[in-house]
C-alpha cells in the first residue's frame, strides 16, 4: 500500500515538475511547482518524517504564493503569447539534463548502499528537536545568521524609495 502511494506521488511530482516549464501561464507554472512540492512533502510523510513533510507543505504554500506575486509582476512578456525559450539552448539543455539523469540513475542502481545503521526512533520529530537544540546547535546558529543576512541584503537590494508615499517617512 505505501509503495503504491509512493509511486503515485513520485510520478505526480515529476509530472508537475515537467509541467512547470511546459505550461504557458505564470500562475500555472507556480502552482505546478507547488503541486510538485506537495507531492514531495507527501513522500516524506511516507518515510515517517511527519514533521518535516508537513513543514515542507506549509513552507512551500507560502513561498509559492509569494513567488506567484513576483512571477506575475516580473514576467513582462506574457509567456503564452511570445514563446520564451529559444530553440538551440533548449536542445542543449535537454542533452545535458538527460546525460545527468542517466548518470545519476546508473549511480543509484549500481552502487551497493550500506546496510541501515540503527532503527528509526519512535518519534523522529523529538529526535530532530533534540539534535537541533543539542549537537547540531551550530547548524541552527549559522542558518539563523544566514536568514538575517538574507533579509538585510534582500531589503537593501530591492527597495529604492518604496512605491507607497509612506516609504520615505
Amino acid at each position: 500500500m505505501r509503495t503504491v502511494v509512493f509511486w503515485v506521488l513520485a510520478l505526480a511530482a515529476v509530472g508537475f515538475g515537467v509541467a512547470v516549464f511546459r505550461v504557458d501561464s505564470m500562475a500555472r507554472a507556480t502552482f505546478a511547482l507547488l503541486a510538485s512540492f506537495l507531492c514531495v512533502g507527501g513522500t516524506m510523510v511516507l518515510l515517517d518524517l511527519h514533521y518535516l513533510g508537513v513543514l515542507v507543505v506549509l513552507m512551500m504554500i507560502m513561498e509559492m504564493m509569494v513567488m506567484a506575486v513576483f512571477m506575475i509582476m516580473y514576467m513582462m512578456n506574457p509567456a503564452g503569447l511570445m514563446p520564451m525559450s529559444m530553440l538551440h539552448n533548449r536542445r542543449g539543455a535537454l542533452i545535458i539534463s538527460g546525460a545527468v539523469l542517466v548518470a545519476l540513475v546508473a549511480g543509484v542502481w549500481t552502487v551497493d548502499w550500506p546496510e541501515r545503521a540503527g532503527r528509526p526512533p519512535g518519534d523522529p520529530t523529538r529526535a530532530l528537536g533534540e539534535a537541533v537544540m543539542g549537537a547540531q546547535m551550530p547548524v541552527m546558529i549559522v542558518v539563523g545568521v544566514a536568514i538575517l543576512a538574507t533579509m538585510v541584503s534582500a531589503v537593501v537590494l530591492a527597495t529604492d524609495r518604496g512605491r507607497y508615499d509612506g516609504g520615505d517617512r
Binding site: A10, G17, F21, L104, W113
Partner: peptide, 26 residues
C-alpha cells in the same frame, strides 16, 4: 533506489528548466 531515482528525475527536470529558460524568474 526508488527514492533516489525520484530525486534524480526531479534534479534533471530542474536542471533542464534552469538551462533552457530565458527569464531569470523561471
Amino acid at each position: 533506489q526508488a527514492f533516489l531515482t525520484l530525486a534524480a528525475a526531479l534534479f534533471a527536470v530542474g536542471l533542464y528548466g534552469a538551462l533552457s529558460q530565458q527569464s531569470i524568474v523561471m
